[in-house]
């Protein structure tokens, strides 16, 4: 087995990079793939809480790299999906604690046992980002349809291409179809025109993401969530399937209006 190493970055923080890593990884493991997610955001770890694994941490990435423990000892097995593991970041160290060579070496070791290794890169273009990027074969850039996130994504894409990785693929997160329709949010075409990278997925703004984060259950486990469906499609595309983009529609029906008026929300199923 020779797994592929993906780095997930964004440039700007808070665009949903960790959420995307957790969900794409979970979706791939639901498809029967062996996946490991590495939280490379040292000092600001979050992947563990998004996955609901924060109480199971014994060792972290820095301890693996420093030889304090074996990599298998730091890997936390996901509670909902088989074949999915998380290596948490250290919370009490800083990004200079590891080098790109060390991350590369670790990923090369993991390639032998896993189909996919996802590195959740820290935001920004500092050393942490470079460590994550240099260890990867492919890159996924996550952005939201706002000017600051797109500008930062462009900077990151420039660095990734200059580093010799294959052209990064783009996930546009938190798209609001109503605003796009009104002309108050950039369209997918606008964003692709600006960034000139292939599109991997469009994820709509979805309240289920917040609920799933609260519960520590990635949204791909909820079949009623549109964001979950979008992430499942991203996983299928990574697997080489030709899947259409999720059609984002604004519902104007009378029931939508009534539901809005009475504040009705669909309950979120946390079952795997």
């Amino acid at each position: 087995m020779q797994g592929e190493v993906y780095v997930v970055n964004s440039g700007k923080g808070g665009v949903g990079k960790t959420t995307a890593t957790a969900n794409v990884g979970s979706a791939l493991s639901l498809r029967g793939k062996r996946v490991v997610l590495i939280d490379a955001d040292i000092g600001l770890r979050n992947l563990d809480v998004i996955m609901g694994l924060e109480n199971r941490i014994v060792y972290d990435l820095v301890q693996v790299i420093e030889g304090v423990c074996q990599v298998q000892q730091a890997m936390i097995r996901d509670k909902l999906t088989e074949n999915l593991y998380v290596i948490p970041a250290a919370q009490t160290r800083d990004k200079s604690a590891i080098s790109s060579e060390q991350v590369k070496e670790l990923c090369n070791k993991l390639r032998e046992d896993f189909d996919y290794i996802f590195i959740d890169s820290p935001a920004g273009i500092e050393q942490g980002f470079k460590n994550a990027m240099e260890a990867a074969d492919k890159a996924i850039v996550v952005t939201t349809p706002d000017v600051a996130a797109i500008r930062d994504a462009d900077r990151v894409i420039g660095f990734i291409e200059a580093a010799g990785l294959t052209k990064p693929e783009l996930i546009i997160n938190r798209v609001r179809p109503g605003m796009v329709r009104r002309g108050d949010m950039m369209t997918t075409e606008d964003i692709l025109d600006l960034l000139s990278v292939p599109l991997l997925g469009i994820v709509p703004e979805d309240e289920h993401i917040v609920v799933s984060g609260n519960r520590g259950v990635p949204v791909v486990h909820d079949n009623r969530s549109s964001a979950g469906e979008a992430f499942r499609r991203v996983a299928a595309r990574i697997e080489g399937e030709d899947v259409p983009m999720l059609k984002l529609e604004v519902s104007y029906g009378i029931f939508t209006w009534i539901k809005k008026m009475v504040g009705f929300k669909r309950p979120m199923g946390a079952k795997a």
């Binding site: 706002d146 000017v147 797109i150 500008r151 796009v180 009104r182 002309g183 108050d184 949010m185 950039m186 369209t187 606008d190 025109d193 600006l194």
Partner: peptide, 11 residues
Amino acid sequence: ASRQNAHSRLK
């Protein structure tokens, strides 16, 4: 619409 404005500024 602000979309066009954002697009040209970003460009």
